[in-house]
Design a binder for these strands. Structure first.
Lengths: 193, 193
DNA sequence: TCCACTAGATAGAACGTTCATTCTAGTGCA
DNA sequence: TGCACTAGAATGAACGTTCTATCTAGTGGA
């Protein structure tokens, strides 16, 4: 997930992610990051200009990683239905493989602590735009109901997020069949009646 | 929303909600709450034992208020479809009327800062249990697909949450027709094919 | 091969600020 | 007078950040 960084940066980012999920931003002190990552505060400030920068870098890296992974599924050759399924499968797959990353993005995508500019860049490099395009195509072909494609994508993403949240809280499991069914539910709701 | 509290408590809770949405928990200092609510720190500590208690009280009050409002729609006499529509309409209505409350609950329902006990009590007094019951009934009657009703409720709630988030971020509007359509999409995805 | 020098990396103490909370003094109603 | 309440200064801990000293690896002249 943090392959583009050096050893120290990687250790700091990984540690920060673990702590922030476990304890929140306000309890994630530089002293604690230093202690748990086994990097002194001096070194941390050698590689990062501030705590804010660490958090924003974390956000950027995770979104970039997930964005690429989902797009690989979404942009394969296939019917709209196939690409719909591949795309959402990958959205869920990232959250299953890196639950901390998923939780972090979920919590901080609406936080003033993440710079607007970072959010904007993340959105543009992410999977939202191609997914919106897929939905717009489906509507143009008369396959999906007529509505704002961006809004329907958001609604479906919300369904996925809450399914994963249920799973992460231990209130449900997340089997292949369950994922397929959830995607099917979204599909069935979206198509023209 | 805070009718059960006295004037000072009400001012503190309302102010805290405004600040925490605008600036995050870590930037919501007691000094700032005191200044903006025009209540001295001494008085605040006369009515609340700590900052944590203020935040947890805020959480409790909002969930209780919303829970009651939604249940009023959900528990009216009517068909499953009607009650489904009334229930979700009210979920969206609370978030439209008190967007700060909605955002706060959204952000903090997964936060370690809110006591487990408070979350538990909130869940029990909220609208989730009756909504789960409605879905279970719908499945028993063969109206909805067979699946874990709690999970489907969560998925639908996720759709609503993300629709409202889109609206609050200015990326879409939230008209009566749009709300009806969103609820219809959920319904169509849920029923037996 | 050796040594002097340099640049970057690292550690952790020190700094100044801000924070949640407590304390003290005061107010006004019963 | 007694008591609930209020104001705001005081307190001490914790924080993000900076500073200073030390370490490490690499370079190049002799």
């Amino acid at each position: 997930m943090f392959e583009q960084y050096n050893k120290v940066q990687k250790a700091v980012l990984e540690t920060t992610l673990q702590i922030i999920i476990r304890k929140e931003l306000q309890a994630t002190s530089m002293a604690l990051i230093a202690k748990e990552s086994k990097v002194s505060t001096g070194s941390i400030y050698h590689y990062f200009s501030s705590k804010e920068e660490i958090i924003n870098e974390l956000y950027t890296a995770i979104v970039a990683y997930n964005g690429q992974f989902v797009q690989e599924g979404l942009n394969r050759e296939g019917t709209i239905r196939e690409r719909f399924i591949w795309g959402w499968e990958r959205v869920i797959e990232t959250s299953r493989q890196y639950p901390e990353g998923f939780q972090f993005i979920e919590q901080y995508s609406f936080s003033p602590y993440i710079y607007e500019e970072v959010k904007q860049k993340a959105y543009n490099g992410g999977w939202c735009a191609p997914m919106n395009k897929l939905y717009a195509d489906a509507m143009e072909q008369g396959l999906f109901r007529e509505m704002d494609p961006k809004l329907l994508v958001q609604m479906h993403y919300g369904s996925m997020v809450y399914m994963v949240k249920s799973y992460l809280q231990g209130n449900s499991d997340l089997t292949e069949a369950g994922i397929r069914q959830a995607i099917e539910i979204c599909w069935q709701g979206a198509i023209r009646g």
